[in-house]
């Protein structure tokens, strides 16, 4: 038996909203440690990885590790029926083929809604991602990151992120012209939610398809800060820290020929 209760259905809704554009079917792996999910897009350019630890839930029970294969679009149909502050309980039998989602309206205890979603058998490839030291890490407000990517995407299909010791620069070039946004490192490191924290051992510049970067911005409502971890010639690791877990992307860079 698996049963997990989230005090705010919106947490799960935001997670699922953030993966809807690139990822069709996902396995949510439930264990005694919490719920985790890893999925690659069809083009094998982006990988999303999520972990919600047991502490994220107001109650949590998982007798046996199970994998809940879900179609993201179907899951969203159900999650969108909920109010943000509804209490969400997810339940599945060990050998069942359904995930039950129950929503309780905190302002109207007399209303309870219940949905059953059919589980899918998803045969998924997994990436073995080695522990990686990143030589450049930029941490900034997620709203700022979202704005930069949104603004620059209008200029070109490709965005270069250039991290140096004193700042980070995002550049786009396209048919209509070019644009860039530079952010200088703040001195109030780590203290302020608005600060730009830059830790660069070695300057790095990597280019990405802006469509995929846009996808990594969709998680901005999940956390106030995002960290961009880069190293020469390997995928960027973009991570949002959740209260009890993380929501992250690996994104393969463009390789110059």
């Amino acid at each position: 038996m698996f049963e997990a209760k989230l005090n705010e259905a919106s947490v799960f809704k935001k997670i699922v909203e953030s993966v809807k554009d690139g990822f069709k079917n996902c396995n949510f792996d439930c264990s005694e440690e919490g719920i985790s999910m890893e999925s690659m897009d069809d083009a094998h350019i982006a990988l999303v990885s999520m972990k919600l630890g047991v502490e994220a839930f107001s109650s949590y029970r998982c007798d046996r590790s199970i994998s809940l294969g879900l179609n993201i679009e179907s899951l969203l149909k159900v999650l969108r029926t909920a109010n943000n502050n509804d209490v969400l309980t997810m339940r599945a039998e060990d050998d069942g083929d359904l995930l039950t989602l129950v929503f309780e309206d905190s302002s109207n205890p007399d209303r309870i809604s219940e949905y059953n979603l059919k589980l899918l058998n998803i045969d998924q490839e997994h990436m073995s991602i080695p522990e990686q030291e990143y030589t450049a890490t930029v941490t900034l407000p997620s709203s700022e990151y979202q704005r930069i990517i949104r603004d620059l995407t209008q200029l070109g299909d490709s965005i270069t992120i250039d991290a140096a010791k004193d700042g980070v620069r995002f550049t786009a070039e396209g048919d209509i012209g070019s644009g860039s946004v530079s952010l200088k490192a703040n001195t109030n490191v780590g203290e302020d939610e608005k600060s730009i924290d830059i830790a660069v051992e070695e300057p790095v510049a990597l280019g990405f398809n802006s469509k995929y970067l846009t996808q990594t911005c969709k998680a901005a409502p999940l956390a106030p800060r995002v960290s961009l971890n880069m190293c020469k010639r390997i995928p960027i690791f973009i991570s949002y820290k959740l209260q009890a877990g993380h929501f992250s992307f690996f994104l393969a860079p463009q390789i110059s020929e």
């Binding site: 083009a43 990436m127 073995s128 398809n209 995928p235 393969a252 463009q254 390789i255 110059s256 020929e257």
Partner: peptide, 14 residues
């Protein structure tokens, strides 16, 4: 020109 890399160019698939 730049070519789009794929994740398996960098990581192994299990």
């Amino acid at each position: 020109g730049a070519m789009q890399g794929r994740l398996e160019d960098f990581f192994k698939i299990k």
